[in-house]
Simulated assay, not measured.
Amino acid sequence: MAVDEHYNEHGGFPKFETAKVEPEYGELIEALRRVQDLAVSVDMPADALKAALAQTQQLVATMEPHVVPERKTPAGRVPRLPGRGSLLMLPWTVEKFDADGVRSRGVFRRFHLGGNGAAHGGTLPLLFDDLFGLTQHAYGRPISRTAYLHVNYRKITPLNQPLVVEGHVDKVEGRKTFISATLKNEDGELIADSDALMVQLLPGQQ
């Protein structure tokens, strides 16, 4: 496995360090995810809509004074939380993280609905891309960017059903890391599979 002597020079990428957060942080992220689920699920009358708007504006006012630069926010830096505490990432939990591969488990929620009870097709590349980043990191590869990502949709991706995504490094060629992954249900049925090329950044590249 490679050791990147220029880790801190690649496009300003900070070295990953686990963030220390209060217990309420995880509860806040989960509550915000529930708000996301509800926001795409409800049809409120005017009075309820106005009340929800006022409460949301109050929440914004409470949080806004505490905005910090990217390197200081705990979002995405709390491995024990689903989605590592990031609202952008799917709320999945990493079960395995080592040089042999990365495995994560979770569900697609109502917020991820594409239509007719299925997850939006665009959420799968997000799931796979995040997994590939974790996979190349677990393998010991240097900071890299996704050069391409291909997804094969084998079955409809259901909402609110436990699924497992697992990826591993297939081969390394210089700055290139080739990775593949599968998404399956708990019965082992293949939902989708993906392969990607991650390319190591040169010093100063973003």
Rank of each mutant, 00 (worst) to 15 (best):
residue 41 S to V: 06
residue 32 L to C: 08
residue 28 L to V: 11
residue 17 E to Q: 11
residue 180 S to I: 00
residue 155 K to N: 11
residue 124 L to D: 02
residue 71 R to G: 02
residue 108 F to R: 11
residue 119 A to P: 08
residue 112 H to T: 05
residue 24 E to G: 01
residue 41 S to T: 11
residue 106 G to R: 11
residue 76 G to W: 09
residue 160 N to L: 15
residue 163 L to M: 15
residue 127 L to A: 12
residue 116 N to I: 04
residue 35 V to Q: 08
residue 7 Y to F: 14
residue 41 S to C: 09
residue 148 Y to N: 14
residue 77 R to V: 07
residue 101 G to W: 09
residue 46 A to D: 14
residue 39 A to P: 06
residue 94 V to L: 04
residue 204 G to D: 06
residue 193 D to E: 14
residue 159 L to P: 12
residue 191 I to R: 04
residue 181 A to C: 03
residue 187 D to I: 03
residue 161 Q to K: 14
residue 18 T to C: 01
residue 21 V to T: 15
residue 156 I to H: 11
residue 174 G to K: 05
residue 132 F to Y: 15
residue 112 H to L: 10
residue 13 F to N: 05
residue 39 A to Y: 11
residue 201 L to N: 01
residue 134 L to I: 00
residue 47 D to G: 00
residue 59 L to H: 11
residue 40 V to C: 08
residue 162 P to R: 12
residue 105 R to K: 10
residue 182 T to Q: 10
residue 166 E to T: 15
residue 34 R to P: 00
residue 193 D to W: 06
residue 134 L to C: 04
residue 42 V to G: 04
residue 172 V to T: 06
residue 47 D to V: 09
residue 21 V to N: 04
residue 62 T to H: 09
residue 22 E to C: 10
residue 201 L to W: 03
residue 108 F to L: 10
residue 34 R to Q: 13
residue 10 H to G: 08
residue 58 Q to Y: 05
residue 196 A to W: 00
residue 63 M to C: 10
residue 61 A to F: 11
residue 82 P to A: 07
residue 24 E to W: 15
residue 106 G to L: 08
residue 66 H to L: 10
residue 102 V to H: 05
residue 148 Y to G: 01
residue 12 G to R: 01
residue 147 A to R: 14
residue 146 T to L: 01
residue 200 Q to N: 03
residue 165 V to T: 15
residue 69 P to N: 09
residue 152 N to T: 10
residue 161 Q to W: 04
residue 177 T to D: 00
residue 45 P to L: 08
residue 84 R to D: 14
residue 165 V to S: 15
residue 135 T to V: 04
residue 88 L to M: 12
residue 103 R to V: 13
residue 168 H to R: 13
residue 128 F to Q: 05
residue 117 G to A: 02
residue 88 L to N: 09
residue 91 P to T: 11
residue 141 R to M: 09
residue 156 I to G: 13
residue 8 N to M: 07
residue 86 S to M: 09
residue 181 A to T: 01
residue 105 R to S: 07
residue 91 P to W: 08
residue 127 L to F: 01
residue 154 R to N: 05
residue 117 G to I: 02
residue 161 Q to A: 12
residue 74 P to F: 14
residue 122 G to Y: 05
residue 103 R to H: 03
residue 71 R to A: 13
residue 144 S to K: 00
residue 117 G to L: 02
residue 189 E to R: 13
residue 8 N to H: 06
residue 181 A to E: 00
residue 205 Q to M: 08
residue 148 Y to W: 15
residue 189 E to I: 03
residue 58 Q to G: 10
residue 40 V to W: 05
residue 41 S to Y: 12
residue 20 K to Q: 14
residue 139 Y to Q: 02
residue 182 T to N: 07
residue 178 F to M: 02
residue 48 A to Y: 07
residue 91 P to F: 05
residue 95 E to K: 13
residue 145 R to F: 13
residue 66 H to W: 15
residue 53 L to P: 01
residue 116 N to H: 08
residue 6 H to F: 15
residue 19 A to K: 06
residue 83 G to L: 12
residue 100 D to I: 02
residue 183 L to N: 07
residue 90 L to H: 14
residue 190 L to E: 14
residue 95 E to W: 01
residue 39 A to W: 12
residue 38 L to Y: 08
residue 132 F to W: 12
residue 177 T to I: 02
residue 147 A to C: 02
residue 171 K to P: 01
residue 5 E to N: 08
residue 140 G to A: 06
